[in-house]
Design a protein around this nucleic acid. Sequence first.
DNA 1: TACTAAATTGTAATAATATCAAATTAGAAA
DNA 2: TTTCTAATTTGATATTATTACAATTTAGTA
Lengths: 143, 143
Amino acid sequence: MYEKYVKTLKDHSIKITSQRLEILKYLNEHHTHPNVEEIYSELKKKHPSLSRTTVYNSLEILKKNKIVQSLTISGSELRYDIEESLHHHFLCKKCGAILDISITCPNMDRTLDGGHRVEEVQGYFKGICKNCQTTEKGRRTNG
Amino acid sequence: MYEKYVKTLKDHSIKITSQRLEILKYLNEHHTHPNVEEIYSELKKKHPSLSRTTVYNSLEILKKNKIVQSLTISGSELRYDIEESLHHHFLCKKCGAILDISITCPNMDRTLDGGHRVEEVQGYFKGICKNCQTTEKGRRTNG
DNA sequence: TACTAAATTGTAATAATATCAAATTAGAAA
DNA sequence: TTTCTAATTTGATATTATTACAATTTAGTA
Ligand SMILES: [Mn+2]
Ligand SMILES: [Mn+2]
Ligand SMILES: [Zn+2]
Ligand SMILES: [Zn+2]
């Protein structure tokens, strides 16, 4: 059940704790880019002793080890995501969904403007998602 | 002196106030992507009655009118920038500088993943800036 | 099985931003 | 130019996300 996450932590020499395993599992199973509060309140249901501070601490150490990444696309709080292949993100201004975008960025791992060394790239796209456009049209037609 | 900024506000039918003019002037003259506190404390020197709330409110209305834009690249607070031609940003992890990057993004004003309507694109690059690399090398060589 | 450094917990502090009501003012109308 | 009013500014207070910290617990090693 948790072997996969145990391995991930071992590979990075991070101590294995149930809290960390649960957080990793949650992120692996929910690619919705949740914020700390969502992760905390969801896991709290099954593990009532969980502390918010632990969620913050765990995400921090996972981030340092590049196992998860944080996004600032929402503007108001950090959103979390497991680090898989490089991808970008789309924020729907109507429904708030944050979606994965798999376009290749021609500027990763490059030296920019003749000198800046790039270690991270984040592409944020904002607009109206496919689904919300359909709904708009639907509403107009129906009502 | 302020004609340029008066015109900008008039063109958008935004009421002309000294506070708004000062903020616009500040952003036009400082392309350092300052946060609210920097703008506030700098302008406060010359205009002691200025309120932080006004800085927040003004930036908000300027943003709604696409006269300024906000960046979340720093993670902890919003940074502001006048909206000129589309450009992206580089954050130096060493000195904290936020620099303009003028690369063309092939994904603006497009429809992504067969349906999402893109209205905004922000490209965030993070790493070590040219200047900080020179310093590193210099240090190593010299000491 | 015992030990210890690291992790977890809960509380309290901080920082950024939002809310609100009273005072002021920009700009339209008279 | 003066009057009027809706919009803006102000300052105080509230809220929210995040960090700091000290006491308790625990993972993993010896
Ligand atoms: Mn993602
Ligand atoms: Mn810029
Ligand atoms: Zn949507
Ligand atoms: Zn630098």
